[in-house]
Lab assay of single mutants.
Amino acid sequence: NTKMVRFKKGDSVGLRLAGGNDVGIFVAGIQEGTSAEQEGLQEGDQILKVNTQDFRGLVREDAVLYLLEIPKGEMVTILAQSRADVYRDILACGR
């Protein structure tokens, strides 16, 4: 149940992230009207890879910085997997 989305970065990627470290990086929110939303990313999706950067094992701050450093107008390719069950557990633990 993995999906790959590809879009051109606007002012931002339009994602709020949660998790990090051993639990993985998850989409915690999506800005309305962004390409990330239009391409089908959803809250609870685990981000496995962005462009050439493996997101598994990253701390959340490093994942956020990586997304911020992608220049506006560059193509962004995100490999994600729907993991809403794991995401709910992360929220319940306050991570």
Score class of each variant (00 low, 15 high):
Gly94Ile: 00
Ser35Met: 13
Ala36Gln: 06
Arg95Pro: 15
Thr52Phe: 01
Gly20His: 05
Phe55Arg: 05
Gly44Asn: 02
Met75Pro: 07
Ile47Leu: 07
Phe7Tyr: 06
Val86Tyr: 12
Ala36His: 09
Arg95Ser: 12
Gln42Trp: 01
Leu67Ser: 04
Gly73Phe: 01
Tyr87Gly: 10
Gly14Lys: 04
Leu17Glu: 01
Arg88Gln: 12
Gly44Met: 07
Phe55Ile: 06
Thr52Leu: 04
Asp85Val: 08
Gly57Cys: 09
Thr77Trp: 04
Ile30Trp: 06
Thr52Asn: 15
Gly20Asp: 13
Ala63Val: 06
Gln81Phe: 02
Gly94Thr: 13
Val23Pro: 00
Gln81Thr: 09
Ile78Asp: 06
Asp45Ser: 02
Val5His: 04
Glu37Leu: 09
Ser12Cys: 10
Val13Pro: 05
Ala36Pro: 10
Gly40Pro: 11
Glu74Asp: 11
Gly29Asn: 06
Leu91Phe: 13
Arg60Gln: 15
Lys3Cys: 03
Arg56Pro: 04
Ile25Gln: 06
Gln81Leu: 08
Glu43Val: 15
Gln46Tyr: 08
Ile47Cys: 01
Ala28His: 05
Gly57Tyr: 09
Gly20Met: 02
Val23Met: 08
Arg83Lys: 12
Lys49Ala: 12
Ile25Arg: 04
Phe7Cys: 00
Asp85Asn: 12
Asp62Pro: 04
Ile78Arg: 00
Lys3Ala: 00
Leu58Ile: 14
Asn21Ser: 15
Ile25Pro: 06
Gly24Phe: 00
Asp22Ile: 10
Met4Phe: 11
Arg56Ile: 04
Thr34Gln: 08
Gly14Thr: 09
Gln38Pro: 02
Ile47His: 10
Met75Trp: 15
Gln31Ala: 12
Val59Gly: 15
Leu65Ala: 15
Asp54His: 07
Asp45Trp: 06
Val5Gln: 00
Gln46Pro: 03
Val76Lys: 01
Met75Cys: 07
Ser82Thr: 10
Gln81Tyr: 08
Gln46His: 07
Ala28Leu: 00
Val27Phe: 00
Lys8Thr: 11
Leu79Thr: 14
Ser35Asp: 13
Asp89Phe: 02
Val13Trp: 10
Gly40Trp: 06
Met4Ala: 08
Ala18Trp: 13
Ala63Ser: 00
Glu61Ala: 07
Gly33Ser: 07
Arg95Cys: 15
Lys3Asn: 00
Leu68Trp: 09
Gly24Ile: 07
Glu69Asp: 12
Gly94Tyr: 02
Gly73Pro: 00
Gly14Leu: 03
Arg95His: 11
Arg83Val: 03
